[in-house]
Computed example of a mutant assay.
Amino acid sequence: MHSVRKIPQPGQPAMPIRFALGECALGALLVAHSEHGLCAILLGDEPEALRAELRQRFPQGELVDGDVDAERLLAQVAAFVEAPQLGLDLPLDLRGTAFQQRVWQALRAIPPGSTLSYAELAERIGAPRAVRAVAGACAANALAVAIPCHRVLRSDGGLSGYRWGVARKRALLEREGRVQRFPS
């Protein structure tokens, strides 16, 4: 079980957030980790925009660029994007509400090549009326591919609502092979 991390209060030392920037098949990739595990996997078009998003996400953190461990993690994540069947079993530093963490844990249980609708995901976590909140938790996910919110579709099976763009969502699902509904 992953725990919620608190932002340091004034007077406390800033937590180091070590990161590396690179490229993958989906564009620019930023991977960041704290002493507790991966805390951000960001995708985008411009590396500087990803760096700015990391600064915004961790305003109290001490950002350390080019860390050797972060470079290794970057290579692992880029390889996983290329070949999802490799798996990505790395420690995660999940930062979110208890509800978001329930959603993120349920997302991690969806195997590659399978999908759920937002409504089905809400049912799985025992909150069938919380479809919008589930969608909000997916949108708040800062760990692309490690928390596979790209595997959640609209009820009609259509692609929508991916934080890093619908084209990247489609590309990730295509890389995972034939998409099928996740069995109940």
Rank of each mutant, 00 (worst) to 15 (best):
S3N: 01
V4F: 14
R5Q: 11
K6W: 08
K6Y: 06
P8D: 02
Q9M: 14
P10W: 05
P10K: 04
R18H: 08
R18S: 14
L21A: 10
L26E: 07
G27A: 05
L30P: 07
L30Q: 04
V31D: 02
S34V: 02
H36E: 15
G37D: 05
C39Y: 00
L42Y: 11
D45H: 10
E48L: 15
R55W: 06
Q56I: 03
R57K: 13
R57P: 11
F58K: 04
P59D: 09
Q60R: 14
E62G: 13
D65E: 15
D67I: 03
D67M: 07
V68A: 15
D69A: 15
R72P: 01
L74D: 05
A75E: 12
V77A: 11
A79G: 09
A79V: 00
F80R: 08
E82P: 01
E82K: 12
E82S: 15
A83V: 06
P84Q: 08
L88S: 10
L90M: 10
P91I: 12
P91T: 07
A98Y: 07
Q101K: 10
Q101F: 09
W104H: 11
W104G: 12
Q105R: 13
A106K: 06
T115G: 11
L116H: 02
S117F: 06
A119L: 11
A119I: 01
E120F: 03
L121A: 10
A122V: 06
G126D: 05
G126T: 03
A127R: 11
P128R: 09
A130N: 03
V131I: 13
A133T: 00
A137T: 05
A140M: 01
A140Y: 01
A142H: 07
V145D: 01
I147M: 07
P148N: 12
V152P: 13
L153R: 13
G157D: 05
S160A: 15
Y162T: 03
Y162W: 15
A171V: 07
R175V: 08
G177S: 08
V179F: 00
V179K: 03
R181G: 14
R181Y: 02
P183S: 14
S184I: 06
